[in-house]
Design a protein around this nucleic acid. Structure first.
Lengths: 321, 321
DNA sequence: CACGGCTCTCGACAAAAGTCAAATCTGGGT
DNA sequence: ACCCAGATTTGACTTTTGTCGAGAGCCGTG
C-alpha cells in the first residue's frame, strides 16, 4: 500500500495531464522532469489503471436484435458485436466488447467468479487495466494441469492482475479419477469453503464449451474423444465451468460429472450478474442449453449467432402457436 | 433514445479508436471518412461521455493527513488537494479533485442531491461528461432569482447535463417573506413530494457557506449585511443548502430559517454519501459546524484547511485529556 | 574502489493528433 | 428548378505526442 516515489510521480503526472488538461510539456515543467519522461509516466498510468479510459458499450445493446433477444430469452442485457463490419477478426471484436462490458459491470468491493477457457483467457488478455480496490476474483472450478496458457488459475490470476484485485485460486484438480476421491476433496475445509463462497459472488464471467473432440476437456486429456461422443449420446449439450450439462442446462447425470470439482450450478445461478460470452458460431446448442438452464443473465455474442438465436426463438414461438 | 446516424458514427469511431486501439487514420479508412472527421468525432465522444477518461484519486486519500482526519472526525473518506504545489490556482485544484471524486462516487441508477453555491457551480463547470443512465439529479433547496450563474437550479441542471442524467428542479423560492407562506408552500404536494424524496438520495454534493457579508445569501439579497451579523450574534456558524446552522450543525432557531424552503437536515443526514467540498480557507468554522452536525461523510479540502482541522482536533483532544 | 549490470532520464527525431479555412453537402423556401 | 443558410467534411498545415538509443546515476560485488 505504501506508494513508491515513482508511483507518486506517475500519479501526479496523470493528474495534471488528464484531470487538469495540461499539455505534456507543461506537466514536465511543473514536475521538473523531461517531457519524454512524462510521456512514459502517462503510458504507465494507463497501463496500471491509474487512469481509466472506457468507451460506452451502448451502441451494442441499443441494437434492435439485442432488444429482441432480451425479450425472447428473458435476459437482463445482450450485447451484439457486429461481425466483419469493423475489424478483420470477428472473434477479437467479441472479446474486446466482452472486456468492456465486464469492466462496466464490475463495481468496487465486488466478488467475481471466473471460469476458464480460450474465450475467457482472450478477454483477460485484451482487457485494459483498472484500479478496483477490494475486488476479489475467485476461480469457479478446479485446475487442469494442461500445457495451455488458459488454465483455470491463469484466467483467474490474469483478470485479478488487470483489475489490481485479489485473486483466489482453487488448488484442486478439475477432474479426479474416482468419484470417491472427488467427494473426499470436496469435503476438505479449504475446498468446501471456496465452493461455498461462490454463491456470494456479484458477477460471474464464463463461456460455454462445445461437446465435441475440439473441447478443451478432450484436449487437456480429461476425457477421450470416445468418452466425449458417448456423453453426447447421453444428452450432453454443453460444458460450463468444466461440468457437462444437458439441453435443459442441468448437470448431466454421468460418471464424469461426479468426478469433477467445480461450482455447483445452483451457486452459479445465485450470482446476480452472470456474464456469458460466446465467440464461436459452433457453440449454438451449448449456448441454448446454458440459457435454458438460467446460467446467463448478460450475454455477449456476435451478430451471426444473434441471428441464429432469434431464428430459433421465432421458430419455437411459431410452433407453439 | 433513438440513436441518430451521426451519433452512430461517433460511437463507432470511439469504439475502434479507444477499445480496439486503432490509429485515427485506420479508423478513417474503416469508416470511409477523413481523418479530420475522425478527430472531430473523437472529441465529441469525449465531450459527451461516450468515452470516459478518469484518473484515480487515490493519491489524495492516501495522504497521511487525510487518514488522520478520517480518524479524528469519523469521516468515511477525505481527499486533500496539495495546495500551490501543482497548478497556479489552488481553488481550481480543489474543484477538479472534487469533480473526480464525485464522478467516482456516482453509480448507475443513483439519485443525487445537489445544493448550490460558487463551489458547486465551479465543480459542475469543470466536471467531465459521463454517460450515466437512470441517474436523477435533484435540487436540495429552493431557488434564488439572483443574477448569478450559480443559482440552485443552474447547478442542478448543469450537473444533470454533464452526466446525461435527469434533472429535477425545485420550483419554489429559497426564502419567502413570511413564515406562513413558507409553511403553505412546503405543504403543496409538488413541493412536499420533492422535499420528501431528498432522503432517498444516494449521494449529496454541497459546500458550506460562511456567515458574513460575503455570503451568497447577502449578495442575493436574501439577507441584509445587518441581519447576517445579527444571526452571527445568535450563534450562526454556517450555511447549508440555504439554511443557517449553529456550531453544532443544527438548524438555528431564527426567523430566517423558518422562511426558507430547503431540505431538512434530517433528510440530508439520511443520504448515504454526503460529499462536502470546501474551497475557501475562511470557511473553517462553518466546516467544523457542518462536520459536528454529521452533514458530511466524504470531504474534499485543500492542504491548508486540512492542517487547520488537524490542529483543531489535536488541541481539542489535548484539552480533553 | 573499480566494475558490470541495472534502471531511470533525456534529447532528437518520427509519428500521430489537433486545427482551421475552404469546399461540399443538405434541406427547406421561393 | 433554383438559391441560400447552416451544418458537415476535407486537405493542408501546426502542434503535440510517442519512441529509441545514448548517457547518467545507482547499487551490490569481487
Amino acid at each position: 500500500m505504501a506508494i513508491r516515489p515513482a508511483e507518486q510521480l506517475i500519479h501526479k503526472a496523470a493528474w495534471l495531464y488528464y484531470a487538469h488538461g495540461l499539455r505534456q510539456d507543461e506537466v514536465a515543467n511543473q514536475l521538473k522532469i523531461s517531457r519524454a519522461s512524462v510521456a512514459m509516466y502517462l503510458r504507465k498510468a494507463r497501463e496500471t489503471g491509474i487512469v481509466n479510459i472506457s468507451t460506452s458499450t451502448q451502441l451494442f445493446t441499443d441494437d434492435v436484435m439485442a432488444r429482441q433477444l432480451e425479450d425472447a430469452f428473458k435476459l437482463d442485457a445482450v450485447w451484439i458485436a457486429p461481425e466483419n463490419a469493423y475489424v478483420a477478426d470477428a472473434s477479437t471484436d467479441i472479446a474486446v466488447l466482452a472486456a468492456s462490458v465486464f469492466l462496466e459491470l464490475v463495481k468496487k468491493g465486488d466478488r467475481i467468479g471466473v471460469a476458464w477457457g480460450r474465450t475467457v483467457y482472450t478477454i483477460a488478455d485484451i482487457m485494459s487495466y483498472a484500479d478496483l480496490q477490494d475486488v476479489t476474483v475467485v476461480q469457479l472450478c478446479g485446475n487442469l494441469g494442461a500445457p495451455y496458457s488458459y488454465r483455470p488459475d491463469q484466467c483467474t490470476m490474469e483478470i485479478a492482475r488487470r483489475l489490481n484485485a485479489k485473486g483466489l485460486n482453487f488448488y484442486a484438480p478439475l477432474v479426479l479419477s474416482t468419484e470417491g476421491l472427488a467427494q473426499g476433496l470436496r469435503a476438505e475445509p479449504v475446498i468446501r469453503d471456496q465452493l461455498a463462497g461462490i454463491g456470494d459472488c456479484d458477477l460471474a464471467l464464463y463461456s460455454v464449451g462445445a461437446v465435441d473432440a475440439d473441447s478443451h476437456l478432450v484436449k487437456c486429456g480429461a476425457l477421450s474423444p470416445a468418452e466425449m461422443s458417448a456423453l453426447r449420446g447421453q444428452g450432453a449439450a454443453g460444458v460450463i465451468a468444466g461440468q457437462v450439462i444437458d439441453a435443459d442446462g442441468e448437470v448431466l447425470d454421468c460418471d464424469y460429472n461426479r468426478r469433477v470439482i467445480s461450482a455447483e450450478l445452483a451457486s452459479l445461478r445465485a450470482i446476480g450478474k452472470r456474464l456469458m460470452v460466446v465467440q464461436e458460431d459452433s457453440k449454438f446448442e451449448p449456448l441454448l442449453a446454458a440459457i435454458a438452464g438460467g446460467l446467463c443473465t448478460h450475454l455477449v455474442i456476435g451478430a451471426h449467432m444473434a441471428g441464429r438465436l432469434l431464428d430459433h426463438a421465432g421458430a419455437a414461438s411459431k410452433k407453439a402457436s
